[in-house]
Simulated scan of single mutants.
Amino acid sequence: MDPTIFTLLIVVLIIIALSVFFSFFPVMLWISALASGVRVGIFTLVAMRLRRVTPSRIVNPLIKATKAGLGLTINQLESHYLAGGNVDRVVNALIAAQRANIPLSFERSAAIDLAGRDVLQAVQMSVNPRVIETPVVAAVAKDGIEVKVKARVTVRANIERLVGGAGEETIIARVGEGIVTTVGSSNSHKDVLENPDLISRTVLGKGLDAGTAFEILSIDIADVDVGKNIGAHLQTEQAEADKRIAQAKAEERRAMAVAQEQEMKARVVEMKAKVVESESQVPLAMSEALREGKLGVMDYLNMQNLNADTQMRNSFGKAPDDNKSGHE
């Protein structure tokens, strides 16, 4: 074999061997830890590799914790990493809490992190309170005038209640409920406009932060506007509804009257038909009476004279216009 090729092959094998060695034996990380005063064995780092733990994710936060004087162990950090937590964020939160003189243990910070909350942000909110702005809350005073209120709530994270405590949505909902209650109990919307701090005092007195992960420091009314006249609007709608009911009842009475009129007309027509039918039977009855001898000729003539006299009397009783129109 050519010596040059052999030498090149040896170099390649050495590079591969060193790469495999340094991948399982993080020597540089071990040296950095020793230089920072963190005592960790090289075989401990190799064991992390075998447990599928990235050594830098454990050693670098441990170096920060050691420099800050937290006194954490590598087993604590590795167990939190294996549980699915963010080791670096927990260590940063512990350092921030120590600098701010906030009592926070590793177990509690790890529990907060595993609960899905940002423990570092919670510590920062404990130092620097956060302002939450509520949406516009519409409420109606006793005089029927709508009042629109927007509030700003200053809250501070309560680390003791971060695990199991309600979030910002609960705070916003409770503040909105307090605003509606306060405005609704006011006799006039002018009272709310003149004293908007009444809302703040009433809402703060209800203890809205109970059971939440926050502590309410203050509630400030940012904006108060007058909305619609809900009372007048409701009265207008009620009047319109009453008018429609009255119209429906009137239409019902009219329909009943028309039906009764039609029924009476039908009865009159029926009675006239019966009269005509009865009158048509009279000549037949008279002819039958003449044949049987029950009615004489003189009786028939007297009845004809009586009919003629009746018709004459009826003609005398009519108005001149009726007689004229009758002749025409």
Rank of each mutant, 00 (worst) to 15 (best):
F316Q: 03
A139K: 11
G167V: 00
A273G: 13
V192H: 02
F25D: 04
F24A: 11
N92W: 00
S185V: 03
V119H: 01
A33Y: 04
I132R: 10
F43V: 14
S278Q: 14
A115C: 06
P55H: 02
G69Q: 03
V226G: 13
A255M: 08
T154C: 02
D118T: 00
V282H: 07
V136D: 14
T170V: 12
P320N: 09
K67G: 05
E177I: 07
F214L: 08
L94E: 01
G84D: 05
V226L: 14
L295T: 11
E237S: 10
K148M: 01
A248N: 13
N158G: 09
F22Y: 10
T154F: 01
V11R: 13
L120M: 06
N60D: 01
L94N: 05
A259F: 03
V123K: 03
P103G: 10
D197P: 12
V282L: 15
V140D: 02
Q98E: 05
D113M: 02
V147N: 08
Q260I: 02
F214S: 10
T54S: 15
S188C: 00
E78K: 07
L208G: 08
N128K: 11
V119Y: 00
M271L: 14
Q260F: 00
L82W: 00
K206M: 13
D118Q: 01
P26T: 00
N229I: 02
Q121V: 14
E279Q: 08
